[in-house]
Design a protein around this nucleic acid. Structure first.
Lengths: 347, 347
DNA sequence: CTGTTAGCGCTTTCAC
DNA sequence: GTGAAAGCGCTAACAG
């Protein structure tokens, strides 16, 4: 069966030419119903399926798209991939997923491979380490459609799909303020990606709007290079917070990883949530309700981000004209209020 | 740049023939060092990368492998995929991931597509709905290498890589018994896959070995068809358990999904863990330590399963001979004792 | 309506 | 050492 039946085989068997078979299978108007019927039946019976490599080679497209993410083993990423896969499958594109593991070098390697493979376009959420998108831009200049998702950047002009990080962070912080918290710490990453700065800015803006002084010592930027480093940085940060004369009464954590790791650390250090410290963070974990106390979160529409990004990419791929007008789509986050940010005022 | 530079282009530019270029780039002994050098430099400078579709078409291989899983949006699956990706990338195979969403129909569709794409082999963890692997077998008979991972089956003879589900379940149950639990409920899935029956058998064996009567009413088989159904079944099961005259004092949950969803339900119904009921389950969640009480788990070596499965598949792909001797590799699980199964005897 | 032909980019015999 | 030519499976322009 892997000794695939080809057009040639069918042609021989049916005593027709290869092109007649091809046209029949593509339902060309040139072919008589009778012949088509015959071919279709034979093809179906012998389980014919066109060789996509040949087709791709011929047509100069592969009907596949490359997806580059930081890691497969990441809850939030999985949800986005699910969305990407859903839309791509609907449109009969196959996705080839590659991991950068937050390394610029690996990311380039992924891109080269995808390019060599002849993908029709690329969806990418750049590595944290990546401050330089020039390789991506050169690919785009070469005619390869590219769409950024989740982690956006101003360096490249193309369609971009992400969450409204500013507003999400703003809402989270305001929520903390309104529930009686005033010394609000913020744990973020040590990168320059827009998701970092936007979330930081949302946090700051909320403080300003509510007349709370911004204290730089309450913001710590943790190393995302690897899990161990991140864990260390987070633990040190929390210890630091707790050693302050004026301890923070709440933490706003900026990413999925930071949020869940903080929980484990706070747990280990025996701090009580929300009595000792309240916590709210960006995370899409399914376990928010299973946690005790249940975890207040800023939820990102991960599936939709993926789906929409795929849609935008495929729209470029299938557009006959060169796109000059690009969109940046920003989806709303949802503030999920649970027990980890219980109201201090009514307590 | 997507108007790729081809062998032809290089040949023209260097006033050589296409085959000379091809041979140079493949470091053939037939070509003079001088020419090779010239070609290599030119190729590198112009960023030549071979068109993998053309190469694949020519060679009858694509250096890609298809991976079929139930869902991308699943913590445990992600970890296995990570392992698969790691090994495949090392061996310069690309992976094409497809989701069956537990549907037999979708699974077949995935397999057809992968086959059409000309993958060199397939890694599959069959859909829950799938009780009939005949399509897979026919692909294998046609010469396509196939390796099963995680969810194994006796229906097909090939390499298989999974966890030791029997022993994992046995150890979990024994752990519950040794910590003073005697009315141990078991929540499993309503399927006939080996992972279901093995876990059930491990549970039973432990009861027998420790002289505890097996009570069928303490075992419930929940519908995995979709999240809502599963959620309903689980909730009803828990309500049922709690309505018994002799309430169970512990639950052993058989899968990742079941474990985490149970936690949320128990939380919502305000049952205290482990006072009201202890819980231990198969799950690889990162949040086991962040939960309160922290969650005792049976941890599966997901990454290793993926890695090993990829290794076995690639070994078949690259073997010159037809494989007749197949292996089933079973990896040990790890019992992670935390607070959700605190010892009742010392309490 | 059907068939012939060329060619996508590459490898690989076989000549020169 | 190098090149010409065939062919992987497919599509499409063109002939008949």
């Amino acid at each position: 069966m892997n000794n695939n039946v080809t057009l040639k085989d069918i042609a021989k068997a049916l005593n027709l030419s290869i092109s007649t078979i091809s046209k029949s299978l593509n339902d060309s108007y040139e072919i008589s119903l009778e012949t088509k019927e015959k071919v279709l039946v034979y093809a179906k019976f012998h389980n014919y399926s066109p060789n996509r490599m040949a087709k791709g080679l011929k047509e100069g497209k592969s009907r596949s798209i490359g997806v580059v993410v930081c890691s497969l083993d990441n809850n939030f990423v999985s949800q986005m991939l699910d969305g990407i896969d859903k839309y791509s499958t609907e449109k009969s594109y196959q996705i080839i997923i590659m991991q950068s593991k937050e390394s610029l070098e690996q990311e380039s390697a992924c891109l080269s491979l995808l390019y060599a493979r002849g993908v029709d376009g690329i969806l990418i959420s750049p590595a944290y380490e990546n401050v330089d998108l020039s390789y991506l831009i050169s690919l785009q200049d070469g005619g390869l459609p590219i769409v950024l998702f989740d982690r956006l950047s101003d360096q490249i002009e193309t369609h971009k799909v992400g969450a409204d990080n500013f507003k999400g962070a703003y809402n989270a912080t305001v929520h903390l303020i309104k529930t009686g918290h005033s010394r609000i710490a913020h744990l973020n990453t040590n990168t320059t990606l827009s998701i970092t700065t936007e979330r930081l800015n949302g946090y700051k803006k909320a403080l300003i709007d509510y007349g709370i002084e911004f204290k730089p010592e309450l913001v710590r930027y943790c190393d995302y290079a690897d899990t161990t480093k991140l864990m260390n940085d987070l633990e040190r940060s929390i210890q630091f917070y707790m050693s302050l004369d004026e301890r923070p009464d709440a933490i706003f954590t900026a990413t999925d990883q930071i949020t869940t790791k903080c929980l484990a650390i706070l747990n280990r250090l025996k701090y009580k949530i929300p009595e000792d410290i309240a916590i709210i963070g960006f995370t899409n974990t399914d376990l928010a309700d299973a946690l005790k106390p249940s975890l207040s979160t800023i939820h990102q529409p991960a599936f939709e981000i993926g789906q929409l990004a795929a849609r935008k990419l495929i729209s470029i791929i299938e557009s006959r004209y060169k796109i000059t007008e690009f969109e940046t789509i920003v989806l709303d986050t949802v503030l999920m209020i649970r027990e980890s940010t219980r109201n201090r005022l009514r307590a």
